[in-house]
Each structure stands twice: as structure tokens, then as C-alpha cells.
Design a protein around this nucleic acid. Structure first.
Lengths: 353, 353
DNA sequence: ATGAAAGCGCTAACAT
DNA sequence: ATGTTAGCGCTTTCAT
């Protein structure tokens, strides 16, 4: 009972084709007919059946985005970025969740493919490429990995330069005069390791010594992040070397660490300067405003969306591309010191905000 | 060039129908044929074209969910709840964003309808019902409003009982012995007002006096939530009446308020007990673990998903239903006091966690 | 500037 | 147990 093309056509004593032409903005229709059609379409609240159209044209003008979850702000920003980019190009976006479950991810991908999405953006949790290899995709639907490369895959990819996250934070601390940099290190994942490497490289390039004592490991992922940060700081404070700058894997860890420092009477940023990562506004605007390396989720999303659209119009075959988005430092009071500017780090640290 | 039903059929010297039957699990196919078909289907990685199927059957097995944003944890939990429920019933979910923009919301709805979703779940930001009235929906695609009723609408609705959020928090504070309850009040929205009413009613039923001085208004929504909570508490502390329990509109405000109290040497929960709302795990597990009224986003999502599925199978016409989900109190140390149990509040306060 | 015919890939309904 | 026919609502192609 929904209105169809034919209904309008009969109603107006025209053929379906004419209506179809008007609706797709084709030119070879008399102005008068066009007006009549548009009028009636509006009156009847006609809404083209996208299924029928897609079946005929072979494209849906819809992209699929697959994310592990939406509760991490990073992923919701990512989704937003993709959505914006893709919508501005006249495409729709269908977001699907995997709950960090590799099998569910596969089912969701199959589902989106069955629905004939024009391209697929996947934040994958697969450990191997076998599933994707089996898809025999690439010949058909463009696929872009986002945020996380599947180990061994050579497909198109857009992500954050984790290595630069570490480097940016360290460079910044160095630039405000810190000399003994501590790091509350994240998990031993590829991404976590890259950040850590970036941190070390920055030290190296600034010719600062690396103190293994100043790097605190994950400390049991069971504990709440805040507590991990808090306890990590306490441990640092009871060590031989007193740090004068600290970078944390997450903002929440940094907040915990700052609290621990404050509880020991340390002044921030004079005594120790702090930098977190993630730039989660709400966390960064608590007691002492926290400087943080912004993970640029929406930029990653926009770039990934753009790449997918390009792959579509290139009718694939363009070979796979890779983009690493640079994180942006947002400085706030937790690292706002004037003194002790040192020779600038050799790479631009991308300070903003 | 993707594999079609016909390809398999030709390949196996069968008709399309037989293949179709096997794939849909119909019974009247010989076990042998069935096995052969399944085998070949797997080999060729055949994936049914959902567009074609939907066009034929008139249903997509997909629901649409429209949310203003995904950055609020509440909405992402909501989406997750809907997704879970709906997937367990063999349906898919397409999530779309509106960025709090009423016009974009309308476009997204039109899009999903064009894509023939079987039902629509909408967290609407419309101020009037006119758009939905015009949809002439209800005759066709079931629509469920989620979390927020559009003013004046009488459609199906699933949401959180805001009134009970206020009541639950207040009841709890009363039950741990508080007598002078303060409230860091949220925005002057319908939801905010309901919470406030619940708070007052709880006081009334416990025969406790209401002190207008102990209710602090939004204090300029420009300021960061933490700061609003912090400043609100300071204002309370400089007032005539010293509160012994405080409820805040959000967890972040509660955290800010606790910090302010601590900075004035007040002990928590002995001096003042605190309850937030939202039960955002990360915020509740900071310095002093914060008791909070859980907004039950995923339960709202699950119930909304279920209602939508019911409306589908009832082939609508069931008349509109309303469900108000009750929030759950999660007690943590910020309100963990033993003494002074008062006569129990007249309603169950739904303590858990 | 408009229309008629054919067909996208699938399934419902009716054979056999 | 398997096949045939027709058609979902649209657009492509080829007339007129």
C-alpha cells in the first residue's frame, strides 16, 4: 500500500519512466510535466523504494562501518567522522557492532555484504587475515581497515599514528623543560608498543637518558584505570629517580596520577608536568586541566570515509593505500610551564589547541 | 559478477527454487540434494542478495535506530541494548545519527524508510509532532519513540522513569540516615524537571523538610560539568544549612562536588553522602567510589527493541504502548554509612549492585 | 519530450 | 521432491 512510481504515473496519465526521470533530475522533461510530477509526489508523500532501485542499479549508496563497540569515545567519534564525510557525498552509513567478538564481526560483515553496501569500513578484531582473504573481496566491494591493521594484511588502511602519540607527548614535555620523563605505559598491544617506541625515540632525539625505572607497566588490567594511574604515580614517587614530567597511556590514568602527585604535595605543573592521551574533554576539564594528545577519532573517520568513497569511484583496482593520521597535542594547565625551554625537538610536535 | 542463485542452480542442474528452498531451510528437499547444494554454496561463497529478497518479500529484517549522538555513554548503551535484543531475534540494526539536528533527524528517518526498515526506533529531538503526523506511519512501519517523548505524541514509547531517578537517589540518601538533602539540579528540561519532582516527592513521603537553599540550579551550562559540581558544593557549604547528603544530576557533577567537599575537610560519606546519576563506571571508580543511579541505557534499549519487534509481529494495530524503565541504584563508598537507618521509605528504592 | 519492454535476483503460488 | 511462471518497484535501453 505504499505509493509506487506507477501510482503517480497512472494518476497523472504519464508513464513510470517520466516520473522516474523527474525524480532523478534528468533534463529531458518539459518544465510543465516536471512541475506536475513534483507536485503530486509531494502530495502523495511518495518515497522511492531503495531496495528496488538498488536491485536495478547495483548500488545502494550506503557504506557499512563495523566497530567493536561504541562506548569508547574514540569509536563514537570515529563513527561520527565517517558519517559526516560520507553523508556530505550523498551516501548513507550503517553502523554495526561486534562487541570485540571476532566471529560476530564476521557475521556482521557478511550481513552488510548481503545488503550490498558499496564499501566496508572495518575496525577489525581478527587476529589473522584468513577471513578477509576468503572474502574474495577487493575484486568487488572496497574494504578499508580502520584504526587497526589486521596482522599481515596489505589492504587499505587508515589509522592513528600511535608512534606519534608517544613522540608528541614526550616532545611536548621536553619542550616545557622536563628532563626526567616517566611513562605510565599501556597494554602490550601493537599499538601500545608503538606509542612506547615513539616515547623512547623522542627521548633519544633530544639526547635525554632513558630510565627504565620511570616506565611503569600496565599493572594488572583488572584494576580501574584511575587506580592504575594513582598507584603507578606512587610507585614512581618511591623510586630512586624523581620524574619531572609524566605521560600516561590514557587520560584517566593521567588523572589518577595527578591525584597521587597532589596527595604527596607535589605541585602541577611546576613539580611534575602531565600529559594524557585521548583528549577526552570531560576528563581533561577536572581539577587541574589536563594536557592531552588528541587521538583525532573524527579525523581518522573522515579520512577513512573519504578513502572508501575514492575506492568506489576508482572502481577499486587502485591498489591499497595507507594513511596515518597525526595526533594533535592540546595543551592545558597540567603542562603549562614557561621556564626551561630546551632546544626544540627535531620534529614538529604538532602543538595546537 | 557475484554468484547468484541461478549460478548454483545451473551448476548443479537444479532449478533456482530448489536452491532457494535449501537456503531458507525448507523441509521438502531430499537430504542428498540438500547436501549437494549446501556444499556448492559454501564452495562458491554464495551470499544471497538481500535487496532482491527484500524486494520480493517486502521485509528487510532490519530495524532502524536514530540517535542524536553516540558520544554520550547513555546512547551508546542504548544502541547496544537494541542491537542485542534485535539480533537475538534474527534482525539487523542500522544506527543513524542526527547530531541533535531536527532537520537531519527527518532526513535520516526518510532514508531509513526508503530503505524499507521493518520498524523505526527514534530518540527524537523534534519539538512538535507535525513531522511524525505527516509520515502517515503507524499504518505502515511501526515506530517507537525512545528515551524522549515528542511533546504531544501518543505513540509507543520506551524510556527511563526520570521521576524515579530523583526518587531513588533521595530515598537512598534518606535510608542511610541523611536528613538535609541537597540537589545539584540539572537543566530545566522536561526530564530534568521530572527528576527534581521525584526528589521532592521522596522528601515529602519521608516527611523531611524541603529546603530551597539546598537546591542549586544549573549554574550556566557553559561551564564544564566538573566545575559546576565543584562550585555548587562550595555554594552549599557557604549557606545557612549544611547538607548531610547530596544528589547530583550527573556523575561528573557529583565528582566535582565531592572534590569541593574534600577540599573543605569534609569526610565522605560521614560528613556528607553523595549520589550521582548515570553510573558511568569510569567516573564512579575514581577517588572515592561514587554511588550512582544507573540510567539503565541498555535495558531501555532492549525493551525498546522488543517492543518494536512485537509491533512488527502484531502487524501494528496493537495501539501504542508505553514502558518506563526503573533506574537502579548502585551503592558505593560515597554513601556507605551504617548509622542512622530511618524508617524505610514508602517505596522500594531498588537498591542493587 | 515521452513511452514500451526487459530484467535486476529473488520467492510465492501453483504445477508436476 | 522438484520445476514453472509471474512479479516485487525500479531503471536501462531502445523506440517514437
Amino acid at each position: 500500500m505504499p505509493v509506487r512510481l506507477k501510482d503517480i504515473a497512472d494518476d497523472l496519465n504519464l508513464s513510470k519512466m517520466t516520473i522516474s526521470r523527474v525524480l532523478r533530475g534528468q533534463t529531458d522533461v518539459s518544465a510543465e510535466t516536471k512541475a506536475r510530477v513534483l507536485q503530486r509526489v509531494k502530495e502523495l508523500r511518495y518515497r522511492p523504494n531503495a531496495m528496488a532501485r538498488s536491485l536495478r542499479t547495483g548500488q545502494t549508496s550506503t557504506l557499512g562501518l563495523i566497530v567493536p563497540s561504541l562506548r569508547e569515545t574514540y569509536f563514537s567519534e570515529l563513527a561520527r567522522g565517517v558519517d559526516q564525510m560520507v553523508r556530505s557525498a550523498g551516501y548513507g552509513l550503517a553502523v554495526c557492532l561486534t562487541e570485540d567478538d571476532a566471529e560476530l564481526e564476521q557475521r556482521q560483515i557478511e550481513l552488510l555484504l548481503a545488503r550490498q553496501v558499496d564499501a566496508l569500513l572495518v575496525v577489525s578484531v581478527q587476529e589473522t587475515t584468513t577471513f578477509f582473504d576468503g572474502l574474495a573481496i577487493g575484486e568487488s566491494v572496497p574494504l578499508v581497515f580502520v584504526n587497526r591493521k589486521v596482522p599481515g594484511s596489505t589492504r587499505s588502511f587508515v589509522g592513528l599514528s600511535e608512534e606519534r602519540v608517544g613522540r608528541t607527548a614526550a616532545d611536548h614535555l621536553i619542550s616545557v623543560g622536563c628532563r626526567r620523563l616517566a611513562y605510565l605505559r599501556g597494554p602490550r598491544t601493537p599499538a601500545g608498543d608503538l606509542r612506547y617506541n615513539g616515547f623512547r625515540e623522542a627521548l633519544h632525539e633530544a639526547e635525554l637518558p632513558y630510565h627504565a625505572d620511570l616506565v611503569i607497566d600496565g599493572m594488572g588490567a583488572e584494576a580501574a584505570e584511575y587506580k592504575r594511574g594513582f598507584d603507578g604515580m606512587l610507585r614512581l614517587l618511591s623510586g630512586r629517580i624523581r620524574p619531572d614530567g609524566l605521560m600516561a597511556y590514557t587520560d584517566m590514568m593521567a588523572v589518577g596520577a595527578m591525584d597521587a602527585a597532589l596527595s604527596r604535595g607535589i605541585r602541577i605543573p611546576e613539580g611534575i608536568a602531565f600529559v594524557g592521551s585521548g583528549n577526552e574533554t570531560r576528563l581533561c576539564e577536572m581539577r587541574i586541566a589536563l594536557s592531552s594528545v588528541d587521538a583525532a577519532g573524527d579525523e581518522v573517520g573522515r579520512k577513512a570515509g573519504r578513502m572508501a568513497l575514492q575506492l568506489i569511484s576508482d572502481n577499486s583496482k587502485a591498489g591499497s593505500r595507507r594513511i596515518l593520521v597525526s595526533p594533535k597535542l592540546v595543551q592545558r594547565s597540567s603542562s603549562l610551564r614557561q621556564y626551561g625551554k630546551v632546544a626544540p625537538a627535531k620534529r614538529p610536535s604538532g602543538i595546537s589547541g
